[in-house]
C-alpha cells in the first residue's frame, strides 16, 4: 500500500507526514511528481493558506491535476483532503477573488459569516465534528479547526458539520473521496484515529 502525500508548496506537510506515520502508514512518499500520484494506492492532499494561492500552486505542478483526476476520479483511489486540501475539492473558492477548484463536490468556499455574533474569525480551536449522515471515516468527536473560509454547498456532499455562528461544514465526502476542514494531524487521538481509518478504508 503506497500513499502519496502531495507536496505542492502549500503547508504543513511534515505535520501531516508525521501523523500518517504515527497512524501506522509504512509506505509514504512525499511527492511533487504527478506520475508518483498516478500510481499511488492512496492520496492525501494537505493545504494551508489562501485558496487561490493553493489552487494556483497545485495547477503549477506539471500534470498533477490530471494525475489526480485519473487516479482518484476514474480509478477510485481513496483520497483525503485536509483543510485547504479539502476546500480545493469544491467548485470554486471566494478568498481574495474567485478561483476555480477541482469541482469534485458541489459547492463553493466562502468566508464564515459571523456578523452580528460574538464568534471570532478565524474559527480557531477545538470544536465538534457532528456527522450529518453515516460515513465510515467520520465519527463524532472534537477536532482542531483553523480557518476563516468554509465549504458551502450541496448537503448531499456534506457528511459532518461543526458550529461556529451557525453550521459550518466539517467534512465532505463522495464515493472514494473525503475532505476534512479540521486538522487530523493536530487533533491528537481523534485525528490519529481518523487517519488510521483512512489507511484501512476500502471504499
Amino acid at each position: 500500500m503506497t500513499l502519496a502525500l502531495i507536496d505542492y508548496g502549500a503547508g504543513n506537510l511534515h505535520s501531516v507526514e508525521n501523523a500518517l506515520r504515527a497512524a501506522g502508514c509504512r509506505d509514504l512518499t512525499v511527492t511533487a511528481e504527478a506520475d508518483v500520484v498516478a500510481r499511488a494506492d492512496r492520496i492525501v492532499l494537505p493545504g494551508v493558506g489562501a485558496f487561490g494561492a493553493c489552487a494556483g500552486a497545485l495547477r503549477g505542478v506539471p500534470g498533477m491535476v490530471q494525475a489526480l483526476e485519473q487516479r482518484v476520479r476514474r480509478e477510485g483511489a481513496p483520497f483525503l483532503g485536509i483543510c485547504v486540501g479539502m476546500q480545493l475539492m469544491a467548485e470554486a473558492g471566494e478568498e481574495l477573488g474567485t478561483h476555480a477548484g477541482l469541482g469534485w463536490v458541489r459547492g463553493r468556499v466562502r468566508l464564515i459569516d459571523a456578523a452580528g455574533t460574538d464568534a471570532k474569525v478565524p474559527h480557531m480551536g477545538w470544536n465538534d465534528v457532528a456527522p450529518t449522515r453515516p460515513h465510515p471515516l467520520i465519527v463524532p468527536g472534537e477536532a482542531y479547526f483553523l480557518h476563516s473560509f468554509a465549504f458551502a454547498g450541496d448537503d448531499g456532499d456534506v457528511v459532518a458539520t461543526t458550529n461556529h455562528a451557525g453550521p459550518v461544514t466539517a467534512a465532505v465526502a463522495r464515493d472514494n473521496m473525503v475532505g476534512v476542514q479540521f486538522h487530523p494531524e493536530k487533533s491528537q487521538h481523534y485525528g490519529l484515529a481518523l487517519l488510521d481509518r483512512f489507511l484501512k478504508w476500502r471504499p
Binding site: G125, W126, F145, N163
Partner: peptide, 8 residues
C-alpha cells in the same frame, strides 16, 4: 456546542 476555550 461551540468552539472551545483553549488552555495553552
Amino acid at each position: 456546542m461551540t468552539v472551545r476555550a483553549r488552555v495553552i
